[in-house]
Each structure stands twice: as structure tokens, then as C-alpha cells.
Amino acid sequence: MAEVQFLALTTKPSAQLAYTFQAPEATTTPVLVVFLNGLGLPQAFWQPVIRQLQTLRQGHPLPAFLTYDRYGQGQTTDRDPQDADAADPTHGHDCLAAVQDLRQLLVQITRDQLGVSDLATVRLVLVGNSIGCALARLYAQEYPGTVAALLLLDSVLANSDFVSVFPDPDAPGFDPASIAPIPVEAIRAVRAGARRVFHPEVGSKEGLSRRNLRQLLPHSDGPPLQGPDGHGPYVTVVGHDFDAFAAESAKMGPPAPVTNRFVNPYWQRYNEGLAQITAPEYSMGPVIAPNAGHFVQKDNPEFVAQELNALLEKVL
């Protein structure tokens, strides 16, 4: 496993970020693969993917790899300094602020670790899971022409409140027969659980807020992204295995039949839209990750490495 190091962003000098960096091998093209965590798993869970990829690419060029923990996450114990005066520390900053931090991190890493003074000359490959996919999209939107490829692993439903995924038994004209044989009270309980755990009004331990994520990314299928070569970036969209996710969700509350009937089709439609953020000839997916729930990199790192390798073959 790569050694964890610490640095302070020049824009936030009072706090340290934990990161790992692995230098490129046998490649003349400056390519940097950046792994973007969700809210649930820290950077350490990307290391099995990197090891699998190194095995796959034996004898072939290897890019540079960067993992990091955002403020207040994993091995980054420092909080975001800008959250110090937040009324609610669980909603201290939004995804756009996290993207701006990422930009500054990349400026410093490419300068200090790659010896490259102009970040625009580095081909970026962003690999995200969950809310990390939203960060990847926002980065590509905020800095057009800079991202060569994106691997999106079970993206957060950025434009959803996570409650409306399920029918509302209290809506006018609701017909209980429409959800049969699922009892009305079961759906009502599932909606309450989703609101309590997943609604955007629920903050996070790291202070990253999702309150305005629906405004930042209102559509799964746009806007179209611009890559560095006059066309859209290569994009691979990966979704969870339906059965594995249903079993995973059942441990938290929603019975598998409810997840299979409402959540999985909803998520699949979202992913189908996500595959349209680039031109069709540069898009792949949605591809289902076998035996993987929401945390694809944990459940099937070999599959992630294979999909990332396929993208690198196009970028390197």
C-alpha cells in the first residue's frame, strides 16, 4: 500500500489533507488517475483497485495515481477551515467547494510530485464512487477541456431527494393496488427511513452538504462534458448488481422486494442518462458490476481495475 502523506493547500494553510501518490512508470504522457471517495469509504479502499491494475498492466505504461481523504474524512482528521463558523457543521460546505479544493490539490500535486507547472498539460482520469461521481462531473463542468476520462461507480442520485423514489401512499389518488402485494405501511416506513438517512437535508460527518446538489446537477444526462481533445471525455458508467444491492439494502431497512421494484429501476434509468454526458462514441454503459453493492471498489476491485484499464488504453 502506498504511504500516506500530508499536505496543506495553499488556499487553506491551517489544515492538512491525507493523500497517497504513486509516480508513473514507463510513460511519456503525463496521465494522473484521481480517485474520488463517496461519503462512506475513505481513500484506503482504492488501494486494492490500484494493485489489481498494476498487475493487469505489467509490461505496459502505468499512470500516476492519487487518492486522498477530504477534510474530516478517513485519515484527514482536520476539518475544513471554512466550516469553522458554520451554523450546522454537518452542512459546512457544498460539493462545489470540494471541487475547488480538489483543483488546488491537483495544482500542487502535479507541481510537487510530477514536476509539471501547468496542470492543463496533464491528462486527468477521474474515478468516483457515489458522491465522488458528482464531484467528478462538477470538476469536468467547472474546468472544461481538462478531464480525459471518467469512471463513475454507482453514482449518487444527484437530482433526487431519495424519498420520491418510492410511491407516496398519502398522495391524492394513490391506489394501494399499484404497489400490491407490498403493504402500504411498508412503503410508508421505507419512505420515512429514506428521509431520515438519505434525504439531502441530512448532513455528513465531514461537513459536505448535499442540500444544493439537485441545483448543481439537476439532470443525469447533462450538461454534456468537454474533454481535452475537442470532443467529450471517455465516460464509463457502472451500476451496482441488483441482487447484491437489494441484499445490502435489506440490512439497513428496505426489504429486497421493495428495492428491486422501485430503487433498482430508478437507479438504472439515472445511469442510462449519465451515459449521455458525453458523445455516444466515447460512452460505455451502464455496465453492471457483478456481485457488487453500492461500494463497487470494495466489493469487486478486480472489475473496477478492468474497466479502468480499458479507459487507460484509450487515454495513454
Results as ranks from 00 to 15, higher is better:
138 L>M: 09
28 T>R: 14
97 A>W: 11
298 K>A: 14
10 T>Y: 09
27 T>Y: 05
210 R>Q: 15
35 F>A: 01
183 P>L: 06
215 Q>F: 00
146 T>K: 09
167 P>E: 05
161 D>W: 10
63 P>L: 10
147 V>T: 15
48 P>A: 02
3 E>S: 12
41 L>P: 00
105 L>F: 04
291 N>C: 07
307 E>C: 11
7 L>N: 09
244 A>D: 04
33 V>M: 09
46 W>V: 08
315 V>Q: 10
209 S>H: 14
294 H>G: 09
252 M>T: 07
102 L>W: 02
234 Y>R: 10
206 E>I: 00
139 Y>S: 07
276 Q>A: 12
141 Q>W: 01
229 D>Y: 00
251 K>W: 06
169 P>M: 01
257 P>K: 03
107 V>Y: 01
204 S>E: 15
283 S>A: 15
231 H>Q: 15
223 P>W: 09
208 L>F: 03
166 F>Y: 14
314 K>A: 06
295 F>C: 13
137 R>L: 12
109 I>Q: 00
242 F>Y: 05
285 G>T: 14
86 A>N: 01
13 P>D: 11
102 L>C: 01
17 L>K: 05
280 P>W: 11
250 A>K: 12
58 Q>W: 07
305 A>G: 10
259 T>C: 11
25 E>N: 04
134 A>Q: 10
193 G>E: 01
249 S>V: 01
184 V>G: 10
306 Q>I: 07
295 F>A: 13
94 D>H: 13
97 A>N: 13
82 Q>N: 15
96 L>G: 05
252 M>W: 09
143 Y>P: 07
7 L>H: 01
156 V>C: 13
61 P>I: 06
79 R>Y: 00
195 R>E: 14
291 N>G: 13
259 T>V: 15
275 A>F: 12
34 V>W: 06
58 Q>P: 02
80 D>L: 00
152 L>I: 11
296 V>S: 08
231 H>R: 14
271 N>F: 15
